[in-house]
Amino acid sequence: MSYSPATQQFLKGAKDGLPFHIVIWPFAAIFGAIATQAGLNVAEVMGFSILVIAGSAQLAALQLMTENAPTVIVLATALAVNLRMGMYSAAITPHIGKASLATRAFAAYMLYDQPYALASIKFEKEPDLSLSEKLGYFFGVAIPIGIAWYLLTLAGALLGEMIPTDVGVDFAVPITFLAVVAPMLKTLAHVASALTSVVLVLVLSFMPYGTGLLVAAVAALLVGAQVESWMEKRKAAA
């Protein structure tokens, strides 16, 4: 059977994204179980996953909600955790920015760590891909992972306490982030920003409701921007 180039790229993206399912499946199921055990009903859990579709932000927000943190802290923390999505958007716009408004809106919804990481690497290695091929690959990674996230979240929410939430898969989230972030640390500004965030999160861990994360996120952005500006001035002077 002969497929169009866009369909071929979609299938390639789906194949490349398969290793991430090893993390997504248990992570989604455990989130669903934890959320129901925290008092959310199935509709609320699914609304959470479908509307936010960002596991790290969802877990951070859920933890703060169980601690009765102020709503503004919950929202600010979730926003800080997801600030990287704005950078993802800026980085991928040159590749798919000419798509239709509806397509760009759906791509924005599906823009999370795994499809961004794989798509950015793909687009850099194969710059001659057409717009439809780039979209095909991006959605090939994003859609199957998104569907898996919904279904396994639902399974976790329905099974509730039948799913153990202490099976030790929490290590999978930082490992996934390392796999996504490490290839992107290509400049001194990137490294400086990453180191700043790591150090400050550890130093400020004593702050209530995880607000140290908010401070670390802002500081990392400022440091990264400052180093980038310094590097550009140095290049211009040279």
Rank of each mutant, 00 (worst) to 15 (best):
V169C: 07
M87K: 11
P144I: 09
L101Q: 11
L185A: 13
G13Y: 14
F31E: 09
P183G: 06
N41I: 01
I92R: 04
L51M: 10
I121W: 01
A172Y: 04
K122N: 14
W230F: 05
G47A: 06
S56P: 11
L40C: 15
L159P: 01
A155E: 05
S229V: 00
Q37N: 12
F171K: 00
I73E: 07
A216L: 11
M110Q: 08
I34Y: 00
S130Y: 00
L129H: 11
L118N: 11
L213H: 02
G47Y: 03
K15F: 15
T77K: 14
A238P: 05
K98F: 00
E228H: 01
I147D: 04
L11S: 07
S205H: 05
H190V: 14
G160M: 05
F138L: 13
G210T: 13
G47I: 07
E232F: 06
T36Y: 09
Q226K: 00
I163F: 03
A148W: 03
V198C: 09
T71Q: 05
D16R: 13
L158Y: 05
H190F: 03
S89I: 09
T71Y: 03
L131Q: 10
I163P: 10
P127V: 03
E126L: 04
A90E: 11
A220S: 08
I96M: 09
L200P: 01
P19G: 14
A157P: 06
T93F: 11
P208Q: 15
G13M: 07
G210R: 02
A194C: 14
V215C: 05
T153K: 06
A80P: 02
W25V: 15
V169G: 04
T165P: 08
A91P: 01
L159I: 03
A99R: 01
V42N: 04
A29E: 04
R104K: 15
L59C: 02
V74Y: 02
A90W: 07
I73L: 13
A33I: 11
M87W: 03
A108Q: 13
S130I: 00
F48G: 13
M162W: 14
S193T: 10
V72L: 10
M162H: 11
A238G: 12
M162D: 12
V198E: 09
G160C: 11
P183L: 06
F48T: 11
Q8W: 08
A61N: 07
A76E: 02
G160N: 03
A107P: 08
V42R: 10
V223Y: 05
A172I: 14
E133C: 07
A117D: 00
L221S: 13
A61S: 10
E124A: 15
L83A: 12
L202Q: 05
G168I: 09
L185F: 04
V215T: 07
M87I: 12
I53S: 06
L178V: 12
L200T: 11
A194W: 01
A54W: 05
G210E: 08
N68W: 03
L11T: 02
I96P: 02
A14H: 08
A38G: 12
G168Y: 09
A54I: 00
V191W: 13
K15R: 15
P94L: 08
L213E: 01
T153W: 08
G146V: 08
A90Q: 10
Y137P: 10
K98Q: 15
V141S: 08
E161N: 14
G39L: 08
T165M: 13
K12R: 14
S2A: 12
S197E: 09
P208A: 11
